[in-house]
């Protein structure tokens, strides 16, 4: 289903994400890469875990704030079946762990540092995402 182009809100959101990444680098010297923060919060020793848990708490608070104040999560729904969500979740988890990053770590923080690894990773996951959606929507149809 089509969604509306939201240039103002999306630009504003990007600026907020950018401000977040700068604040985390300035204060802790850390990359605001969410996949790394999540897996670190789950698996690292306590000294490394705490700041990640605090960050994730903030992430949920910020999301909740936007939902309450601006209704940002109104109408948000999954786009596929529970079975495919499980598969996709596993693949996203394995992929981001294996590839050392996701949209935020590679796509924003890494590209900002002109890291060749991040530029390559971003081009690849964008392309594989585009191919996946093309196959799902235009070759298989929206039957899934």
């Amino acid at each position: 289903m089509a969604t509306e182009f939201t240039p103002v809100l999306s630009t504003l959101g990007g600026l907020l994400i950018g401000a977040s990444a700068l604040l985390l680098m300035w204060s802790m010297g850390r990359i605001a890469g969410i996949s790394g923060i999540v897996s670190g919060a789950a698996m690292e020793a306590s000294s490394e875990r705490n700041w990640r848990l605090v960050f994730l708490l903030g992430l949920m608070l910020g999301g909740g704030l936007a939902a309450l104040l601006f209704g940002s999560l109104d109408g948000v729904q999954p786009v596929t079946s529970t079975g495919l969500l499980v598969v996709a979740g596993l693949v996203v988890g394995v992929g981001t762990a294996m590839g050392s990053g996701c949209t935020s770590g590679h796509g924003v923080c890494g590209i900002s540092r002109f890291s060749p690894r991040s530029i390559v990773a971003t081009l690849i996951f964008m392309s594989s995402g585009i191919v996946t959606v093309f196959v799902l929507r235009h070759l298989l149809g929206e039957t899934l």
Partner: peptide
């Protein structure tokens, strides 16, 4: 500062529309 950074990130994700899979 870490909490504030997290809040800004969460706001950004939600406001930008990225939390909407569609």
């Amino acid at each position: 500062y870490v909490l504030l950074s997290g809040i800004l990130f969460g706001l950004g994700i939600a406001v930008s529309g990225m939390a909407n899979p569609a």
